[in-house]
């Protein structure tokens, strides 16, 4: 007896179900360069590099303080080099951008209430910026008063 497969192939056709291919767009590695909000986002995320860079510079400052007057003076001398000043200006621009974006986004995470009323986001942002100014003045006074 013939195998079922061999006979009547016309009534048992090999066919492909109609299943069209979907088009899956691939995301370019440069997805963030075409739109302004995305550029801003990536710059905001990259500020973390400069925050870390300054944390490392802080470690060097603390180390110099712990090693004595000579080490500290050497570090202070390095701070006066054009390279150091240029580096600090760049770090400053990025950490200020970090601070501004951070405070502007604060109300998305913080829901504060007075009684039953929710404090508007704008008020939370303003408080953050005022605190920033006050704390900066306090730190500057503490250091310069020495």
């Amino acid at each position: 007896m013939a195998k079922t497969d061999d006979i009547n192939t016309s009534t048992n056709p090999r066919y492909q179900r109609y299943r069209p291919e979907r088009y899956s767009p691939r995301m370019s590695i440069f997805w963030w360069v075409h739109k302004k909000p995305f550029v801003k986002f990536i710059v905001r995320e990259l500020t973390s590099l400069f925050v870390a860079a300054y944390a490392v510079l802080l470690i060097f400052q603390v180390r110099a303080l712990s090693q004595g007057a000579e080490a500290w003076e050497a570090l202070v001398a390095w701070f006066s080099t054009p390279f150091s000043i240029g580096l600090h200006v760049i770090i400053f621009l990025f950490v200020v951008f970090h601070a501004i974006t951070w405070f502007n986004l604060a109300p998305t995470a913080m829901v504060l209430r007075i009684g039953k009323k929710r404090i508007p986001g704008g008020v939370i942002i303003t408080i953050n910026f005022l605190m920033w100014i006050a704390l900066s003045l306090a730190i500057a006074t503490l250091i310069l008063a020495r």
């Binding site: 150091s84 200006v89 730190i139």
Partner: peptide
């Protein structure tokens, strides 16, 4: 993010730029 936003800019500005 919070502590660095509040405090790092003044450190950079003072120790790294204004004083030098």
């Amino acid at each position: 993010g919070t502590i660095s936003a509040f405090f790092i800019p003044i450190h950079v500005a003072l120790i790294g730029i204004a004083i030098p």
